[in-house]
């Protein structure tokens, strides 16, 4: 939706533009990419963009798992959702960079960590092709039509707040760009699962139980704080944790495994004695 809105804003500014997503999983939290192409003349090319002039990164942690800045040249630019200043940020290519804490902005304006419109505000500051006014017009148009005037207003506000909070500079290019992990086994390397003994399967990179290597804790925007004194050991949190990250100890007290906690807050909601408290932000205790 952000890519489409950006294209619409460019069109409002008298440019030609197109926008399209990369087809993949449509699940909340799954990495997605979308493209916008802007030109002064009619655009006939229809391919995906491989050498972008600008990369907009909605989640900083993607830098660890996906080659998001692939194809970006040193004369390009980047807009990143992070709390860091541009000079502290290393994205793998040294380019003109703008950073904004879009997550905080979105939570303030929308009461939800949905950062796309806030990021568009930041884009307006860096990209000469679109003005903030046109971005806000496009947001009001697109979001107003789909979600109603109240949502449009909140999203326009998010863009404004992000525009005001954007810091510009140049980011570092020291880290190496991660390449997407490809696993292409030969036929005899494929584990059959059924043939493995239960005691041998722990810690294997593929096959049964191997999802423990996916650290889903990076999804979290709020963290559960556990108060051992208040706990009555009813184990409701252990039962209802969807991410199996509440570990049951010998004495039926619990311990949160923050490497996997996605911060849904069910544990705090089901706790009958308020022994678990959801604290905003990514913390560990």
């Amino acid at each position: 939706m952000a890519a489409q809105t950006l294209a619409e804003a460019a069109i409002l500014g008298g440019h030609h533009a197109q926008a399209f997503p990369y087809f993949g999983a449509e699940r909340r939290g799954a990495p997605v990419r979308a493209f916008t192409r802007i030109d002064d003349k009619r655009i006939s090319i229809r391919s995906q963009i491989y050498e972008p002039d600008m990369v907009v990164i909605l989640d900083e942690t993607l830098l660890e798992i996906d080659p998001v800045v692939d194809g970006l040249r040193s004369n390009g630019s980047a807009v990143v959702n992070t709390r860091k200043a541009p000079s502290e940020l290393d994205i793998g290519v040294s380019v003109r960079c703008a950073t904004v804490d879009a997550t905080s902005v979105a939570i303030e304006a929308l009461k939800a960590p949905v950062v796309n419109t806030a990021m568009l505000g930041a884009v307006a500051k860096v990209l000469d092709l679109v003005t903030l006014e046109n971005i806000q017009k496009a947001i009001a148009d697109r979001f107003g039509e789909k979600l109603g005037p109240r949502a449009a207003e909140a999203n326009v506000l998010a863009a404004q707040l992000a525009y005001d909070g954007t810091k510009e500079g140049r980011c570092l290019g020291a880290r190496s760009i991660v390449q997407r992990r490809m696993w292409l086994p030969e036929w005899d390397e494929v584990p059959t699962g059924v043939a493995l003994e239960p005691e041998h399967i722990e810690g294997v990179a593929v096959g049964p139980g191997s999802s423990i290597q996916n650290m889903t804790g990076t999804w979290r925007t709020s963290s559960p704080k556990y108060d051992r004194e208040k706990c009555i050991r009813c184990l409701r949190c252990w039962f209802t944790c969807p991410d199996v990250c509440i570990k049951r100890l010998e004495d039926d007290h619990v311990k949160v495994d923050y490497r996997y906690c996605k911060g849904c807050g069910i544990c705090a909601d089901v706790c009958p004695v308020d022994a678990i408290d959801m604290v905003k932000g990514v913390h560990e205790w």
Partner: peptide, 27 residues
């Protein structure tokens, strides 16, 4: 709940949305 075995055969690191009901049930 107390009598339930403390052995997880459905482990962390799966990609369900935060707050997924299916993950709770299957776990």
């Amino acid at each position: 709940i107390k009598e339930m075995p403390n052995n997880d055969y459905f482990v962390s690191g799966h990609g369900a949305c935060p707050g997924c009901g299916v993950a709770i049930a299957v776990n």
